[in-house]
Amino acid sequence: MSISKSIVQQALLLIKPGMTVGFGGGSTVGLLVKQAANLINEVQVLTPSPTTRQLATVLGYTVIDPQYCDRIDLAFDGCDQLDHHHSALKSGGGIHTNEKIIATLADEYWLMAPQAKLVNEFDTKDPLVLEVLPYALALVMHKVASLGGQPTVRTAENRDGMTLTDNGNFIIDCHFPSYHNLPKINQQLSALAGVVETSYFDHLVTNAIIGNPENDTINYLY
């Protein structure tokens, strides 16, 4: 059994009939959605991911819109990196704003990740990602540079132009030489006019299921 399947088997035990469940994006979440098929008629689903939404709809889940929901029992998601203080870096997919809404709605926000993504200190290989209003592009680019970062506007792979979020905004990938002051940098950028959200989930993670592929064991972060 792959480590992703082992993680999913543990996550399945947490989902109970009558729950409202959030599912994020990524292959492990997709596998969980498929494996939870016996609960299709007994749970309601929310998701910030268009791919996950399509999968859940095709499978027959009742998918509801977050704008009409003020609480979720639990939500599952992946991440780029997770630390031992329940903070995470996310958003290769650029949907972190909507993911953060789901995380905040959830009584329990569970991340599912392989052991390699659990870190003592965040590695700068993954950028801090900003969702930014188009009107504020130059302002935000200048601010990131003034904080020592290298901002890059994410461009679309299958069309000429910038990548737009589902909310119609730009995505800026910010590479910093160090994440030693990441909470402070995140706070400064979050407060900047035109920044909708950052991809740093500051103490938003309540729990995590961590899989070690070397010995096929599962650990938990509580």
Score class of each variant (00 low, 15 high):
H84I: 11
I101Q: 06
T155M: 06
L31T: 09
V132P: 00
E99A: 10
L31C: 05
A56M: 05
G93T: 07
Q81E: 15
T20K: 12
A56H: 03
D73K: 04
T51V: 10
G60Q: 04
L105F: 11
L139F: 05
G18W: 07
K125H: 14
V45Y: 06
V129K: 00
Y61K: 09
G78C: 04
L111G: 01
R154P: 05
A106E: 02
P134R: 07
A113P: 07
L14D: 08
Q54S: 14
Y68K: 05
A36C: 13
P17D: 02
G24V: 12
Q67S: 13
E121D: 06
T155Y: 00
I15N: 11
E121W: 12
L13P: 11
D80V: 12
A11K: 07
G149W: 05
H96P: 12
L105E: 03
L13E: 15
I95N: 10
T152Y: 12
M141S: 07
G93A: 10
W110G: 05
L82W: 05
G78M: 09
T47I: 09
A138Y: 09
V45M: 01
S91K: 02
M19C: 09
Q35N: 14
D65G: 09
L130H: 08
V132E: 05
R53N: 10
I101H: 10
W110Y: 15
L59G: 00
M112N: 02
V33W: 05
E121L: 12
A106W: 10
Q115N: 03
A88Q: 05
L111S: 02
E108R: 09
S27L: 12
E121K: 06
P17E: 03
G26K: 05
L13N: 14
I64E: 11
A11P: 07
G22N: 12
G18S: 06
T28C: 06
H86M: 04
T47D: 07
F23L: 15
D70F: 11
W110Q: 06
A145D: 13
L133E: 09
C69G: 06
L59A: 08
E99S: 02
L105C: 04
Q67F: 09
I64D: 05
K117L: 02
V29H: 04
Q35W: 00
S87C: 07
I102K: 14
V144G: 10
G92H: 15
L46D: 06
M141D: 13
T51E: 13
